[in-house]
Amino acid sequence: MTSARIVLFGATGYTGRLTAEALLARGARPVLAGRDPDRLAALAASLPVELPTAVADVDRPAGVRRLVEPGTVLISTVGPFARWGEPAVTAAIEGGGVYLDSTGEPTFIRRVFQRYGPAAAAAGASLVTAFGHDYVPGNLAAELALREAGPDAVRVDVGYFLTGDMARRASAGTRASALGMILEPMYGFRQGRIRHEYGRTRVFEVDGRRRPGLSVGASEHFALPRTHAGLREVNVYLGWLGNLTRAAAALSRATPFVAAVPGARRLTEAAADRVVRAGRRGRPPVAAGPIVTQVVAEAYDGAGRRLAGVELHGGDPYEFTAAILAWGAVTAAGPDRPGAGALGPVEAFGVAALERGCAEAGLLVV
């Protein structure tokens, strides 16, 4: 059992429901929070244990703020995060709580680290963003690879790969977040600092196959250089697109010009809103077969020599996200609360504990 109060904001969404079930499996009794009281009541009634509910809407930040008191662990699965995620972050800071979220959106991740991190540190609050399939596995794999490589490592590359029918598996929230990211600037960590980046690609060797990846902004860029002072370059690649990677890279390079077109952002936001509304009416997404996750991290020295590599294998990314959020919340609600500020997964929980948590969530070092 946990000692601190856990609140799950966005509980009625797809990832929210999975997280509620994962929390129950760990013995936690979270408060289910969301904007629609009828959907909250229906969710609470469908679970094997009766849980309390609380109505809170991002359009009324004061209601979100009331969810958090000192020590509260607030999980947010309310996306797209770049549009709707900030009220939960500010609530956690003002309430002196611990914040975890399921975002994979580069713009929001950067905002949490750069805009809200200092305020959280001053208030004694903990912000652990992107604490799901995006981007816990890469942080762990990179940390293990860098430790094996030793002090000569100056660069680490991380690749995320999925095998299976993710087109059918993607939730409405994921699709809406992806639409919101189309016109947002990407970034990497190069020459010792965060830099804008568009359309960078590389090929990884995974299980004897050459798998291309497209660069993406992630939490690894902020977290890893703080635990490894000698790092000069951190690269994160998504390898979900296969043969479409080159076309996606070309589109990424055109992003600054497309974003400058009047009305372009309003169009993508309107499309994302339609996806979210359709998702609320539709059935949960189901893939035609099993989904396999493979995450690779490779450390290099200044001459470009590969010093170490680590590979993690797991299953369905949504199930992993729910399980690791539940693990993180229960851990943070106990005596091992994370420190203050915006933190990466290793900073928040330690590498040994994080590796155990990922293993319990089905992600293993191979």
Score class of each variant (00 low, 15 high):
residue 32 L to D: 07
residue 261 V to G: 14
residue 338 P to N: 13
residue 173 G to T: 00
residue 108 F to T: 02
residue 353 A to F: 12
residue 44 A to C: 12
residue 44 A to F: 05
residue 234 V to A: 05
residue 47 L to S: 01
residue 92 A to V: 09
residue 287 A to K: 14
residue 202 R to A: 04
residue 185 P to R: 12
residue 224 L to M: 06
residue 304 G to A: 06
residue 26 R to H: 08
residue 160 Y to W: 09
residue 144 L to S: 08
residue 42 A to S: 15
residue 254 A to V: 03
residue 65 R to M: 08
residue 150 G to T: 10
residue 149 A to P: 11
residue 130 A to E: 06
residue 119 A to W: 00
residue 223 A to V: 02
residue 60 R to C: 07
residue 202 R to W: 06
residue 230 G to E: 10
residue 29 R to M: 06
residue 227 T to C: 13
residue 27 G to T: 01
residue 268 T to D: 05
residue 33 A to C: 15
residue 53 T to M: 10
residue 201 T to S: 13
residue 80 P to M: 05
residue 241 L to M: 15
residue 274 R to W: 14
residue 169 R to S: 11
residue 311 E to P: 00
residue 305 R to M: 10
residue 246 R to P: 06
residue 163 T to S: 15
residue 201 T to P: 15
residue 360 E to I: 03
residue 183 L to P: 07
residue 255 T to L: 07
residue 118 P to Y: 07
residue 262 P to A: 12
residue 130 A to T: 12
residue 138 G to T: 10
residue 135 Y to F: 13
residue 120 A to P: 07
residue 233 E to Y: 01
residue 277 R to H: 06
residue 360 E to K: 10
residue 140 L to W: 01
residue 50 E to K: 10
residue 1 M to T: 11
residue 85 G to I: 00
residue 270 A to L: 11
residue 325 L to W: 09
residue 67 L to R: 09
residue 344 G to E: 05
residue 67 L to H: 12
residue 55 V to W: 07
residue 317 P to V: 11
residue 63 G to V: 11
residue 307 L to S: 11
residue 132 G to D: 04
residue 279 G to Q: 09
residue 263 G to L: 03
residue 15 T to I: 01
residue 353 A to H: 13
residue 103 T to D: 04
residue 229 A to M: 06
